[in-house]
């Protein structure tokens, strides 16, 4: 604590932090530990919990009756691998385009941010309408242009893509973060590059990109963790996993397992496995980025 404060002031500071720290412990820390424990229990919320060792994991990973976990893990990875690069790169492109100041720029930025503030349920209904095979404006336009009109959400081949498109429009947070990052680059850097005769591409490659790299990495990692959970509401409202489980993403499966069927043990085991896969993905990306650093240094 700050030395210039008196003892009573230090107590005050501690009190000011208490709601935040206590809330974090009770609402996040404790449940996270509890999930780990629950993954090894059989518990339905009524009878007493029973320790079952690794049985829940066995049930989830190698269930002879259904393969819902592997299917939904595949769907989730498919979504993350497509959606995250699209989201980060479009946020970057838009931030680069709209980082200048001038007339109208504020409005353009607001327009880009707008889809991000639409409440989840309303957002899901809007895209169900847009992708509706018969009534939806998208197929009417495609039809008008003489292009094929797929069944979208009704067609297992296209249904996942709808979720990627939806996610690609809600990129306001990444856009704002990169915009702030761009504005914090001192203009002298570009002035110096211009004196040295660097063209636009060279300025981007040697000034903008290296200075934005930490932000891009942060956004990518955050998106890997959060983008798949953020589609839960849309998933629940729009398809509920149909057709043929092609849009059964992991958060929906966890919800069904734990909240509908009260299988808290297997539900928690799935949660733990989702955490492990996410951690592996992040480890992979960090090791790739780390190796770039090494080759740069050598």
């Amino acid at each position: 604590m700050n030395r210039t404060y008196t003892a009573s002031s230090r107590t005050q500071l501690l009190l000011m932090l208490t709601p935040y720290l206590l809330g974090a412990a009770v609402l996040v820390g404790l449940p996270a530990l509890l999930s780990l424990l629950l993954a090894f229990l059989r518990y339905d919320g009524i009878s007493a919990p029973v320790w079952v060792g690794g049985f829940n994991f066995q049930l989830v990973l190698a269930n002879p009756v259904d393969l819902l976990f592997p299917i939904s893990l595949y769907n989730t990875l498919y979504f993350v691998i497509l959606a995250v690069p699209v989201r980060v790169l479009s946020a970057l492109a838009l931030a680069l385009l709209l980082s200048r100041s001038g007339r109208g720029v504020g409005l353009y930025r607001a327009a880009v941010y707008l889809p991000t503030i639409i409440p989840d349920v309303a957002y899901a209904l809007i895209w169900m309408w847009i992708f509706n095979p018969l009534y939806g404006p998208l197929n009417l336009i495609l039809d008008g242009l003489g292009l094929p009109t797929p069944g979208w959400l009704a067609d297992a081949q296209y249904a996942k893509v709808v979720f990627v498109v939806m996610a690609a429009f809600q990129i306001g947070e990444g856009f704002v973060v990169l915009l702030a990052g761009l504005q914090n680059i001192p203009p002298e850097y570009y002035a110096a590059a211009a004196v040295d005769g660097g063209n636009v591409w060279q300025q981007f490659r040697y000034i903008t990109l290296p200075l934005l790299a930490p932000w891009l990495l942060l956004l990518t990692l955050r998106d890997i963790i959060l983008s798949s959970q953020n589609i839960f509401t849309a998933n629940f409202i729009m398809t509920n996993g149909d057709p043929y489980y092609s849009t059964l993403f992991l958060p929906l499966l966890i919800y069904e397992e734990a909240f509908d069927r009260m299988h808290f043990g297997p539900g928690s085991a799935m949660t733990v496995l989702l955490g492990l896969v996410t951690a592996a993905l992040i480890g992979l990306i960090l090791s790739i980025v780390g190796s770039w650093g090494e080759t740069d240094a050598s």
């Binding site: 629950l38 963790i225 958060p251 734990a258």
Partner: peptide, 15 residues
Amino acid sequence: LVVPTVAVWVARFIL
């Protein structure tokens, strides 16, 4: 900031 709420859904519900 990066802990997904999915990770605490089940346990928070029981709590």
